[in-house]
Amino acid sequence: MRFSTLLITAGLLTGLATLTQAQTFTDPGAYNNFIVSEQRAMLKKNLRYISKSAHSDNEKKIDAKRQDLIKQTEASLNKVAKMPAFKDDKGFKEQTTEAFYQLLKVYSEDYKAVDMMAATRTATVENMEQYFKLQEIAEAKLQVVNDSVDAAQRRFARRHNMTISADPEGKRLAEYMRQVSEVNSYQHKVYLAQFRIEKATAKLTDALSAQDPAAFEAARVQLVGDSKTATTELTAIPAFRGKDARYRDAARNLVKFYAGFAATQAAQMKELLERKDALTKADADKFNGFINLYNTQNQKLAQAYNQAGNAFQATYIPVFND
Rank of each mutant, 00 (worst) to 15 (best):
R252W: 01
R252V: 09
N253Y: 13
F257G: 15
Y258K: 09
G260W: 04
G260N: 15
G260S: 07
F261N: 01
F261H: 02
F261K: 08
F261M: 11
F261L: 00
A262E: 04
A262D: 03
A262F: 06
A262R: 04
A263I: 03
A263G: 01
T264F: 12
Q265G: 07
Q265Y: 12
A266N: 01
A267M: 07
A267V: 09
A267W: 08
M269T: 11
K270D: 06
K270Y: 11
L272M: 11
L273M: 12
E274S: 13
E274F: 07
E274V: 00
R275I: 00
A278H: 09
A278V: 00
T280A: 00
T280K: 13
T280Y: 05
K281E: 03
A282Q: 12
A282D: 06
A284Y: 07
A284Q: 14
D285R: 10
F287R: 00
F287W: 10
N288P: 02
N288H: 09
N288S: 10
N288F: 00
G289N: 11
F290P: 00
N292S: 09
L293Y: 01
N295H: 04
T296W: 04
Q297S: 12
N298Y: 13
Q299M: 03
K300L: 13
L301Q: 07
L301M: 14
L301C: 06
A302C: 04
Q303Y: 03
Q303C: 05
Q303V: 10
A304T: 15
A304W: 14
Y305Q: 12
